[in-house]
Design a protein around this nucleic acid. Sequence first.
DNA 1: AAACCGTCCAACCGCACAATG
DNA 2: TCATTGTGCGGTTGGACGGTT
Length: 374
Amino acid sequence: MRKPDATPGKNTNTSNNNNNNKMRKGLWSPEEDDKLMNYMMNNGQGCWSDVARNAGLQRCGKSCRLRWINYLRPDLKRGAFSPQEEELIIHLHSLLGNRWSQIAARLPGRTDNEIKNFWNSTIKKRIKNMSSSTTTTTSPNTSDSSSEKDNCGLVGVGGFMSPMFMDVVVPSLTLTNSSTSSTSSMALNGGHMTDPLQIHIDHHHHHHQGLMNVYGSANGYFSGAGQNEMSAALDFGGNRMIGSYGSGQGGMFGGGGGIGGGMEKEIQQVPPLESISMEENNGPNNNIVISSNLNNKYPFVNSKNIKGESNHHNNNNHHHHNNNLGGGGGGGVNNTNNLANFWQGEDQLKVGEWDLEELMKDVSSFPFLDFQVE
DNA sequence: AAACCGTCCAACCGCACAATG
DNA sequence: TCATTGTGCGGTTGGACGGTT
């Protein structure tokens, strides 16, 4: 079904004339596209049944809606998925599971159908290959997330999360269980996690406000959806942020064998549902600009852009970049204003409990970011 | 060149949910 | 309440396409 058949009448397919309601099915002809497009441009979106009728289309409203959303909509982004989009899809899927519409809502110009197809064809296959090449153990949870009841995404090898380590470089952040130590560790109750998550608090980078790196080491995917999996998430007084960075061998976003190689231009925050845009060039050092128009709902992603510099060296040594938010190697997100203000506004942010399920159950409340890859 | 086969993706289907009468 | 209608979502299908034999 790649191309619509331009021959009038020929593309009426299969059951087109079998049923007596005269509703066409199957591929859309260019004439039908024109009718729908013209109608939508002139009248805007309304009741789809009316659209179908008033546009002179022998299609059900549902079909018209689908055609418009998936193909005719002017703001659709054509072409292959960029590496950034791919990474974002992978991560969003790890958080959201097969909620394609929610994933699509965070990928401007992309449709849920498109993402779903992309996932089912490209990414799933790649994960499958990767999984088979990096481990000899198998798990029912490994790759075929679409068939899983709990929408499990990409959990670690063997269906378990391998030891993970998080570097959380957050000045003035104290963790209630170990506020004085430079290295804190705590366990998260991830159902598939085999080892406690260790969180290292770096108190030595006070001029890098708001930086949080979360990365995984060893084999395993630092991702997951559903209650049994985890991503990293911080809940700061209602403003949640998440971030992850894979550096381990075979990690989901890892440096060796991980999807995307090094996940170097990584934005792990779930972007906003509102006003997302993503533009890109194809250069190896794409910048990522994050902005938001949420009117101070999330002060660290305010209307000022957060600009990430794709610099491999601003990852873990933060001597030159302020406010590197969620940046993996090269994927840092800088915000010299709002993020800093956010962090500076709270002298002692406290993270009382790290309840994975609580964090994951409300993915939609994560800070909304606006992605642009320059 | 023809047959075969795997992949891709547009479109359909069934279901759930909300709104309305 | 209950039925109807409209909408949206996720899963699935089936045919075009391209590569391989």
